[in-house]
Design a protein around this nucleic acid. Structure first.
Lengths: 245, 245
DNA sequence: CGCGGCTTTGATGTTCATCAAGTAAAGTGG
DNA sequence: CCACTTTACTTGATGAACATCAAAGCCGCG
């Protein structure tokens, strides 16, 4: 966690510095969607943002609560969830570092459409909502960047849902394991940040079946499980199941 | 179809008129997302748009083909589809009059992410892509309107997918019938514009099961079916199935 | 007429949710 | 520190929901 604390210090420092153009470079905040802002505009933004962190399991934002600002996830992982009418919790997606969490629906409503809950200890910045709106109105290039970003997020989200929908349980579990390995941790061996129940909620299946498939994968030497750690042993076979399972 | 031809004439007329602020009022084109444009800006847009129509079944835009412009559906209905890796056609959603079809992913890629196919005889306008981009850059208020619109579309799309996902087949079929009745035709008696197969693709089920459930609904006097016409007889029961089925 | 596409119904097997029960791990209060 | 509760994980058995296969009727069209 050396890098994380270093990042935090960097960003907190820049809050005091407020040297034009230097702020928040290392944590990727500026390069995420704010490249088209002038130094003055960006500094104003940087000064009006607040820093916060959340322990694993902590709620960062509640569904239907008023939107206070844009949430930029600096370090950690968070899940987006929503409560169904029938009382079941559904996980929409997972936010990774450098994401603006819930960006997609932020312009359509005064309230968050989803719960945002940390699934790893997380650090994030909250940028004032009205300030961003003002910038959209006054800086067209920034607005265009934002449009592109939102469009990308939407595409990715739909793609994920549609891909999951058409798969059966084996394919879905394989999909999720690959997702964590390739998209998030970029390694074949990682600590699962979510419980079996959460995996089930993420792929719209039942806990028991998720467990069953994981056991099956283990029995077939496709993965190894040690506590919360998962290691992919047979990438080929897993990919095959992901595509055809 | 009197109203439709009237609308078409209206819009085609305005192309010749180009009187500031008067163009395309009746077909809802301007009020959709262009309210924040100056009259000059809007007129330039209106002059650079092309009018087209598509017969039922005709392809308006192909997945992965280059984006020529923003497609504004004036009259008719269109489905958004995509081809899965396994060769199955999946229907993402249905576009209704006054929709900018595929707006959601239009800023993220140079190519259309979905097929757009007319499921009723349709009329649409295509607005030049680069012109809109230019307007985004130069008119911040317009950009903001666009952001709100995209955000709404994204929310609605996700909502629909998530709602469908968690239902079983009876609930899904009921959901779709209600959707056509309430959202599209706004009457309890209407002509289904889609085949049984298309309903199946829309709700991610098999044709046979869709047919079975429709027959079941008919047997239980929930709906009446005459050819392609569907009439809802027991709205209460249908709504109940939609919610709890 | 005959062909292909769409629709419909029945029979059958697979997949998955549910129920049940038990183990392990982790927190809680005395 | 230990009994006690709670929560997560795991496996098996059973039934419900759905896909698949098969077959037949219908309709439009060349």
């Amino acid at each position: 966690m050396d890098m994380n604390t270093e990042l935090r210090n960097t960003c907190i420092d820049t809050l005091k510095h407020k040297g034009p153009g230097n702020a928040c470079i290392q944590c990727g905040f500026r390069s995420s969607i704010f490249t088209k802002l002038s130094d003055e505009q960006f500094d104003k933004l940087a000064l009006n943002k607040t820093f916060a962190n959340a322990q694993k399991g902590e709620i960062i934002a509640k569904q239907y609560s008023e939107i206070k600002g844009f949430i930029f996830l600096r370090v950690g992982l968070a899940k987006l969830t929503r409560l169904n009418n029938d009382g079941r919790e559904q996980i929409i997606g997972i936010a990774t570092p450098k994401d603006f969490v819930g960006l997609l629906s932020i312009f359509s409503s005064k309230t968050y459409q989803y719960n945002i809950i940390a699934i790893e200890n997380s650090e994030f910045c909250i940028v004032d909502y009205n300030l961003v709106l003002e910038l959209v109105s006054t800086n067209g290039d920034f607005a265009r960047t934002l449009l592109e970003k939102i469009s990308q997020v939407a595409d990715l989200m739909m793609e994920t849902r549609l891909e999951l929908e058409r798969r059966q349980i084996r394919g879905r579990v394989a999909y999720i394991i690959c997702y964590f390995a390739n998209e998030i941790y970029k390694t074949t061996r990682f600590d699962l940040p979510v419980s079996r129940r959460e995996i089930a909620e993420l792929i719209d299946m039942r806990v028991e079946n998720v467990v069953r498939i994981l056991s099956e994968f283990r029995r077939d030497n496709i993965i190894r499980i040690e506590g919360t750690t998962i290691e992919i042993l047979d990438q080929e076979k897993l990919r095959w199941i992901k595509m055809h399972g």
